[in-house]
Design a protein around this nucleic acid. Sequence first.
DNA 1: CCTTTCATACCGAGCGATCGGTAGAAATTT
DNA 2: AAATTTCTACCGATCGCTCGGTATGAAAGG
Lengths: 193, 193
Amino acid sequence: MSKRDVILKVATRLFAAKGFDGTSVRRIAEEADLSVAGMFHYFPSKEEILNEIMIGFMDEGYKRLMEIYNSDIGPVKKLEEICKFYVEHYAGHKDQLTILVSEGKSLSLEHRKVFIDKQRVYVEALKRLFDDLAKENLLKPIDSSVLAFIFFGMVHWTYSWYNPQGEIGPEELGRIFGEVLLRGVLKDTERSK
Amino acid sequence: MSKRDVILKVATRLFAAKGFDGTSVRRIAEEADLSVAGMFHYFPSKEEILNEIMIGFMDEGYKRLMEIYNSDIGPVKKLEEICKFYVEHYAGHKDQLTILVSEGKSLSLEHRKVFIDKQRVYVEALKRLFDDLAKENLLKPIDSSVLAFIFFGMVHWTYSWYNPQGEIGPEELGRIFGEVLLRGVLKDTERSK
DNA sequence: CCTTTCATACCGAGCGATCGGTAGAAATTT
DNA sequence: AAATTTCTACCGATCGCTCGGTATGAAAGG
């Protein structure tokens, strides 16, 4: 593992635990076994470290999202697969998820522009999927943006409570999310009431 | 409005926009039209301001949650009412919601204990409601904790996207949340497939 | 009625610590 | 020898917070 990657790894852990503003460059350098100046040899600024963490993680997720979206399965199945993927992906990268959710405000103006645009593209992709469902006349008449945000709410919020080592494994949780989103919490016999 | 309340109001706006660590006491004092020392006349520390904002907001919400929970309506209706209340409540207090979601980590150890305990009580209340639904045999066999967190995910996440002045009003959004949570996004005719 | 007392509400100045970041050189690798 | 990596030493700025006060007005005593 390169020194650069060590810095990213350490910073990811610290940013998630204490926040960007609550983490000093001295602490990052210390835990990466470097002097402060040594650390700044690899990154031009503290903010650039944050940016690289966030952009890298988003791009990773988007790539897989598109793979699922472009695969040759029905839209309902796609949504189920996407639920599963995100729960598993985020469960395996809790620190990155925490940073993604909490530290957008710490990015510089330019980086934040890119960040927000990537978020927008994410939401667009989900909206498109819901629009596909609507085209096949499977969907209730609900605004697809709202549906996309409901999805992201459910999934992103796992950062605050979910323990993948607990009773409910990531795959199981992904299945539950898909089920609740598609068909709700009520039993079949009660749905139409 | 007392000077104390002005400080709380200013701090709420700043903490939500820049984060606790990203907001200086100088800035709070300046915007509250006070010297730094003058501000510390009303609060023993910066952290105490944050604590008061968070605790106050949580207690307010919990009070109303219990009113609905203890009211004399069926559990399905209760859940619908709770969805509506929270969306409206949070839509009217976006800064407080942002702080609640983002700044738990900035509390002192003692305050954080209380904060986490209040969160636990919130989740317990929602779990109880889902357990009530299960007792009436209305619910799919899904862990009630997971359902509570799905609810909070949907609702809390509004902090990141929802504009109450937009096309979809708070009451409408609350209704959508209730519908999706209870019955899912699929049309009735497609549910059992 | 007038004065003394006393608590509340503030403020200017500045404390020690820490912040993000850098200059310049030594050490190491190629 | 050249390039890369890493260091020590330090910068100016800002951090949260506190000190020793002052202004004001209400209560208490004469």
